[in-house]
Every structure is written in structure tokens, then in C-alpha cells.
Nucleic acid binder design. Structure first.
Length: 117
DNA sequence: AATCTGACGGGCA
DNA sequence: GTGCCCGCCAGAT
């Protein structure tokens, strides 16, 4: 379920955008990662990759945001986690190698919603 | 009310 | 191959 902020958004405006983002992120298989751009592209709003990250900011509770990195496989959002190391730690716990804030073998772990969904 | 910024990405110089 | 710039859209100041 959407958080208060997202609920407000989806109620006041018909922005299913955020909800769609959450839905897609929730569907990311454990041990796999995807990128903001990939999600945005899947939703049809290719240029709104930034908004995907924004969505993570308002949710961050029921959504595995740690499985979403930028197109380079870089953990750019780790700084927004309670302990910034939580993101990396979780990924590693799921079997995703992380080195220097970057997902190792990114292409191998990459989960493209357009391809997988 | 206006302006800036932000967990991005792609195109052009 | 690197670097700068622009678009995207909502939220915060």
C-alpha cells in the first residue's frame, strides 16, 4: 500500500506513476537489480528516470529500493538509507556482489522489466 | 508565487 | 573517451 505521501498523490492527482513504480520494484526478484531508467522506460516515461528515484524517497518502506541502482550499476541511492551501508549490505545478503558502491557483473544481475515482465 | 534541487539518462560538443 | 547540457516532474524553500 502506498505511503501517506503517495496516497495523497494518487488520490489528488491520478498519478499512477508512483504506484506503478512501486509495483514494478516489488516485482524485482530477490538477488536481482534494475535501474531507474529501465523502470521509467517500462512505464513509458523514459525521460522521467529521476522521478523513479523520487518515488523511492517517498516510499522506502514496503519497496526493496536497494534493488534499484542507476544505469551504471552504481549504488547512487545508498546515501538515503538509514545506515548508508544498508543498501550494499542487503544486496550482498541477496547474493549480489557489490564493490566500491557498484554492482559486480551488473548486466548479469540486471532485471529489465520490459524484457522480464 | 517563483525558483532550485534531486536516488537519472541520453545526446551532443 | 570525457565532459557538459538538457529534459523529466514533484517537492521543498
Amino acid at each position: 500500500m502506498p505511503s501517506k505521501k503517495t496516497k495523497k498523490l494518487t488520490q489528488n492527482r491520478k498519478y499512477s506513476f508512483f504506484d506503478d513504480v512501486f509495483e514494478v520494484v516489488k516485482l524485482i526478484p530477490k538477488g536481482r537489480v534494475t535501474s531507474y531508467g529501465a523502470i521509467a522506460a517500462y512505464l513509458g516515461t523514459r525521460g522521467s528516470a529521476r522521478m523513479v528515484g523520487w518515488a523511492m524517497n517517498v516510499t522506502s518502506s514496503d519497496v526493496p529500493a536497494h534493488r534499484v541502482v542507476n544505469s551504471q550499476g552504481l549504488l547512487t541511492g545508498k546515501h538515503h538509507f538509514k545506515p548508508p551501508s544498508a543498501m550494499e549490505k542487503r544486496l550482498k545478503a541477496e547474493g549480489v556482489g557489490v564493490k566500491n558502491d557498484k554492482v559486480m557483473k551488473f548486466e548479469e544481475f540486471f532485471w529489465d522489466p520490459r524484457r522480464e515482465l
